[in-house]
Design a protein around this nucleic acid. Structure first.
Lengths: 220, 220
DNA sequence: AAGTCTAGTATTGGATCCAATATCCGTGAT
DNA sequence: ATCACGGATATTGGATCCAATACTAGACTT
């Protein structure tokens, strides 16, 4: 007996996910004020969990907040996305370098398993599962750096742009490319070649940006 | 007619500041659960603004959260602080480099004024004012990079460790040193020498870490 | 005696209601 | 006509109350 849309355990989680989707999909227009009454009713919750979700989004930079004025949808232009990816590059390079220096055999085995998961999802053509598995793979890799706060930051940046990524995996070509790049990164890591691992993952990331630039609606 | 402690415009802001202090000062011990009832009563507010403040702190990594289990004070060991400073280094280097490439005459004039403010506070021996002015100076510098999201991230990292910094300015030597370093950074920026500006500010930051290592209570 | 189920309690999650603040618009003075 | 002032309204901020969940302890079974 399968549950269709397993709703998260709390309303704030549910609203958080929905809001992210609404913002990154453009349904809530950039710059527009978020009327708590309206949105709360739309999602069928009260304003309390909504406000907690908004606080989280504020931390991620998807909304801005002014006391007694409310929350506003933050602009997420192509330039902003590029900026996010630039920041990710800075942080993830550090993570990969440290990971390369510290990675253990057990870590590598776990990464192999994570990559298997990605490929299984790709084979099945399950876009959602692949996005999730891909994320798990990358985070597992970054975790090897032994810098929990760095990983937390990276994870937040991924959260802020998650909705865009799922578009990316819709295309067959990308799915194959991703797998190749993952394998190359793993090989480099296994060989202890930090520079090569960084290089591969930079390309990996850069390609995602290019794809986004192609897919994003150019600002009017 | 001076207001003693101008309480922030909202209870959540007030609680946020107080909580940060309580956590970074160690009054709320690492790993300890945060009982909302207790803390709310202690600060004289209801649980609603407290929970919003906690969400913000979650974003900053000062507390962790598990649904239906509550918030817990996050460990902030010396290692964690080092990690935060390492991340700051990565992000701020990028900001300074971009700033050096884009800084205008007007920007430089504004930075001069910001630095004047710092020196005025230092002269007056007003530690709190100096911390604030110093922060304003650095942020003004980073703003020149034209990367709002990057600046936002840096600001968040500063927020998470603000309480520690005020200790730093308590010492006379540090106040003088800071001013010298600021001036050197400004000179480098004016000369368009990005590498030098980065170098100076790296030293600047590294010294703050060293001071912290001296002052921090070593974990038992 | 060990483990499991169950009732009770503590704590968080969420809804509703009221208060405080900001915005908007009309009125009046200059 | 323009600006300042003031009240009405919309919206956010916060307090209280109730519901849902997780923890605890004790009784019962084996």
């Amino acid at each position: 007996m399968t549950v269709q849309h397993r709703r998260p355990p709390t309303a704030q989680q549910f609203v958080l996910d929905e809001l992210r989707r609404a913002i990154t999909s453009g349904r809530l227009r950039p710059g527009a004020p978020i009327r708590q009454d309206v949105v709360a009713e739309e999602f069928g919750v009260s304003r309390v969990p909504l406000r907690e979700a908004l606080k989280t989004l504020q931390g991620e930079g998807l909304v801005t907040y002014r006391a007694h004025r409310g929350y506003y949808v933050e602009e997420l232009s192509l330039d902003d996305l590029r900026e996010v990816y630039r920041i990710r590059t800075l942080l993830e390079e550090e993570a990969v370098r440290r990971a390369a220096a510290r990675v253990t055999a057990a870590d590598l085995a776990a990464l192999d398993r994570a990559e298997d998961e990605v490929e299984r999802a790709a084979q099945a053509g399950d876009v959602l599962a692949m996005a999730a598995a891909n994320r798990a793979f990358h985070m597992a890799l970054y975790e090897c750096a032994g810098m929990p706060r760095l990983v937390r930051l990276i994870r937040t940046l991924w959260d802020a742009t998650d909705a865009y990524r799922s578009i990316y995996y819709g295309e067959n070509v990308n799915r194959e490319r991703v797998i190749g790049e993952h394998r190359a990164a793993l090989a480099a890591l296994r060989a202890g070649d930090a520079d090569e691992a960084v290089r591969v993952l930079d390309v990996h990331r850069a390609h995602a940006v290019t794809a986004l630039e192609r897919l994003m609606p150019e600002p009017a």
